Amino acid sequence: MPNQLTENPLFNCYGQPRFGHFATPITQLNIDSFAYFNLMDKPASALAKYLHFKQFQFISISHANWQIGIAIADIRYATTAFCYFYDRNSKTLDEVSLLKPLSLGVVMSASPVSGTASVRGKQQIRITPTGYNWQLSLKGELLTGELQLQGGVAPQPLALCTPTGYNGWTYTQKHNALRLQGELKYRGQALDLSSALAGYDFSAGYMRRETSWRWGSISAQLPQGCFGLNLANGVNETGTTENCLWLNGKKQLLAPININFNRQLPQQTWQFSSSDQQVNLQFTPQHCRQERLNFGLLASNFRQYCGVFCGEIQLENGEKLYLDQTPGLAEDHFARW
């Protein structure tokens, strides 16, 4: 697949989104083209059409000794953003978080393959998708640098859109186990990126008023090569799922996943198992990046865990991948927006 993109709109001639997996990413999320109706099939107001749209972008960078997470989430009423650096050896997490009421001063991209998302504050974040590559610019006391997440020679990102609730939709685009090019400093200290791998998440749409999900993610080196994994339940599950893996750049879709853990005892092991028994993983949390916001009509209970995965995954060709203390992320999130 060449590293060039042809026009691939999300909406059809009736203003309705196309659903399913896409071989190439959607090139434009022009919500002005979306024919949005309320629950009684009446055209939604312009204000509802604006306020009900949500979008977030997330980048993870994984190294044997550390983990970085970077996010911008725009829910219209406000934008939250964060950057963190997790040291696997000392099991300590250093972070900066931002809250922008009414999303003032925040820019979000209308496309997962072009444009820019940015937020300013004590940590400046700028994310610029460029075709299959993502550019990341950071400036602040915590993290400073210019990076490119490289899609590779024959990029195979996950790209899908599913119905959400009665009248909504969610578009998700992800790609894990990407090589990095550039420079990055953590509190003035240069980081070695030669063996680091990265992943990105672009998700947007008209999600449920109350939304929740569980999620697991890996970008790591295995004996078989560069390995990426994305497992989730709670959002993209109507007709298809966003579960997939990448091995040396080749994507393989996976069956629906059960993700089980005890929210009151979050340090206990999580279980990830697929409906076809091809995925059987255990995740052990080591540290949690947590944020609870409760404003009544708006609320968020967010927990993202750095930890390690163990277990096995069977590939399409019958080969098994064995994970043993493989670094990764898991997440539990409730949002009322």
Rank of each mutant, 00 (worst) to 15 (best):
A110Q: 14
D94C: 07
C83E: 01
S109C: 02
S114E: 10
P43T: 06
I72V: 09
L51R: 13
A35L: 11
R76A: 10
L47P: 01
S33D: 14
A35H: 13
L98C: 05
V113T: 15
I68V: 12
N65T: 08
K54D: 06
D74M: 00
A71I: 14
S90E: 12
Y77E: 11
S109T: 13
F82S: 11
A81D: 00
P112W: 07
I68M: 06
L47K: 13
A64F: 01
P43K: 08
V106C: 04
D41A: 13
D74V: 00
A71C: 15
T80A: 04
M40P: 01
D87I: 07
G69T: 14
L47S: 05
P43I: 07
A64H: 10
I70T: 06
I59C: 14
A110S: 12
Q57F: 14
A46E: 15
S33G: 06
Y77G: 11
A81N: 01
I72D: 00
I72Q: 03
L39S: 13
L104Q: 14
S90C: 12
I70P: 04
E95Y: 13
K49L: 05
N89Y: 02
L104T: 08
T92G: 01
Y77M: 09
G69Y: 00
S103Q: 06
S62D: 14
A64G: 01
I68P: 00
V96T: 10
L93Q: 11
I70D: 10
Q67P: 05
L98R: 05
M108N: 00
L98Y: 02
K91L: 12
T80D: 06
F34T: 10
I59Q: 05
K100W: 07
A81W: 00
F53N: 02
F58C: 13
I61Q: 11
Q55C: 06
Y86I: 05
F37I: 15
